[in-house]
Design a protein around this nucleic acid. Structure first.
Lengths: 328, 328
DNA sequence: TTCGTTTTTGCATACGTATGCAAAATATCC
DNA sequence: GGATATTTTGCATACGTATGCAAAAACGAA
């Protein structure tokens, strides 16, 4: 069976006690340089690694972050995953990854995180109800909704400024001369889609512009099908705001298949600024979500709450920017 | 501070001993149905969850798989991530995620996995040297190279049949009438790129077909730049085999920008069958990597080795298939 | 050198759980 | 009902580590 080098083995070789070995690995503990060097030399010789489980049992803390991700297919999220991993690794934390298909997180999705006593939880692009998270709250595990918000003041969430951004996109399309526009929504009941629609709609309605709204589902196929539907209605709008980029790319492809000139006949604006948006084939005008800032904000909140849990909640919005390319 | 319900609390409420509580949660342990029901009722009432760390300390085993991923940007890998997560969750295992940029895994990349006593390790699309893995081997932690192989009989690896596939792609392009072809490689020294090149080259050289080879780096930008370079050489080949899809999409875009008709003037074949390959804009002919089978093979090997470590090594190749679309 | 203060160290213990072992309880057979 | 076999149970212990506390050591000032 497996043999582990323990702190006792190191202590013996270094000629100190096990608790001195422990103190060497615990930041800020009182230990002389002489002892520290002896211990580190012995540890190196023996290939010692502290056992995180034993530590966690004593300290009742871990260096594990639970990251619950829906929609890893959307190219926006691999980038989010990468940045979270990098940021937390630098801080000595590891990522326990959970993938889900559910728009609303179910208890089964994340119960496992409690077995591992995770230090914090991040949930991307999915909502969840209070009863699913009450255990986390009771156990003072901070939780962040990333790119999703719930309007009940019970969570900490980090989003792009969807409302403001969508208002700006509406104004931009109006400035570009559109008098008839469409909005293609993402998954029903998601805060991102709702806010993007709300912002866009509020400006359009204040101006002499016609608006049709369509529902879709934040996938390439959804965008493609919806555009086909719009085309079938025979009055293709001059401007289309699509709730996210991956959908927008489907819209672009469908319009092209029907020889609709972009942007001459119809201008397209997406949301996210995924990698593919900049590809020459698409060159999509889009609202850039400030991933790095959003990740930073999330990491800062968690690091603060993990040190001293206050349970404070807030809906944080980070400003993005309009990236103008060839679809408008 | 946090309060945990322990097995002792459950035992007290259920009127049994702590070890009976433990036996209820341990598969196959001897416990009467009467005791089991009492314990489960008490556990439910108190919201008890077994502490994985305490368990691991005793059993010296975990239900954690370390998944080390390079290149999460390539749409091939989010799908791999999702399938691994789903498969292992079903088996009661969790994924500890590590992201790396290194073609060759460094010790720092995965040392942390040892602190968590992971039950198994999967490394996607990266190589590593023996000295990085010797601790894992000594500690009988099985490790799988996914979509990468190293020709030294020291690892278990799971790949697509790159050699065979590339031979078939070469034959296919020859059948399509190509007398001048090019191969665009992925990252230098990767088994996937090397085998794809080897297979392609071996068939091309046996036939009266001209071949030019180019190096690139498995990114869209790499494909785009290399195609630009090919175009600048003024003799655009009739067929181009691109070592992976994301690169191939860049090649397609570059050719189009230069009004080169695909497939009339130049046929393009990629490798992977990522989601974007099927988009109408690209409709890329490609070799489909059998992700599901490859994931399955990996999971089976790990489940076997984790139960009883044998350390056996093999290079497993899973058959993919040619998907013919509009670029050829 | 002595004394007071500060730092370092080791001892003993506990964290929550699984498990070896022996005792207790239950089941089966005559 | 008694003897035997089997199953279940609780006790005591250990896993590897951090930590409270008191003792020992080190440091600095007079």
């Amino acid at each position: 069976m497996k043999y582990h080098v323990t702190a006792k083995d190191v202590a013996k070789l270094a000629g100190v006690s096990q608790s001195s070995v422990s103190r060497v690995y615990f930041e800020g503990a009182s230990v002389s340089n002489k002892t520290r060097e002896k211990v580190l030399a012995a540890a190196k010789e023996l290939g010692y690694r502290p056992n995180e489980f034993a530590r966690s049992l004593i300290t009742n803390r871990t260096k594990i972050i639970g990251l619950v991700m829906k929609g890893i297919h959307n190219p926006f999220y691999p980038e989010v995953l990468k940045q979270f991993t990098t940021a937390f690794n630098k801080l000595g934390y590891s990522i326990l990854f959970v993938s889900t298909n559910n728009d609303e997180i179910q208890k089964e999705d994340i119960d496992m995180l409690r077995n591992y006593n995770v230090a914090g939880v991040i949930i991307t692009d999915a909502s969840l109800s209070l009863n699913v998270t009450e255990d986390f709250k009771e156990n003072q595990v901070p939780l962040v909704l990333f790119n999703r918000k719930i309007d009940n003041d019970q969570f900490y969430s980090v989003c792009c400024n969807n409302l403001d951004a969508s208002e700006k996109i509406a104004k931009y399309l109006i400035e570009k001369g559109c008098s008839k526009v469409a909005y293609i929504a993402g998954n029903a009941n998601t805060s991102t889609s709702r806010d993007r629609e709300k912002g866009f709609t509020s400006i359009i309605e204040k101006n002499n512009v016609t608006l049709n709204k369509y529902t879709s589902d934040y996938t390439y196929e959804g965008g493609y099908k919806t555009a086909k539907k719009i085309i079938a209605e025979k009055e293709v709008p001059e401007g289309i705001f699509v709730a996210n980029d991956i959908m927008a790319l489907g819209v672009v492809d469908a319009l092209r298949e029907n020889s609709i000139m972009i942007p001459a006949e119809t201008k397209i604006v997406g949301f996210d600024n995924i990698e593919m948006a900049s590809w020459p084939t698409y060159n999509l005008t889009t609202w850039e979500q400030p991933i790095t800032k959003m990740v930073e904000q999330t990491v800062n909140y968690l690091m603060t709450e993990m040190v001293e849990f206050s349970g404070y909640t807030e809906s944080v919005e980070v400003n993005g920017a309009l990236i103008v390319r060839k679809t408008t």
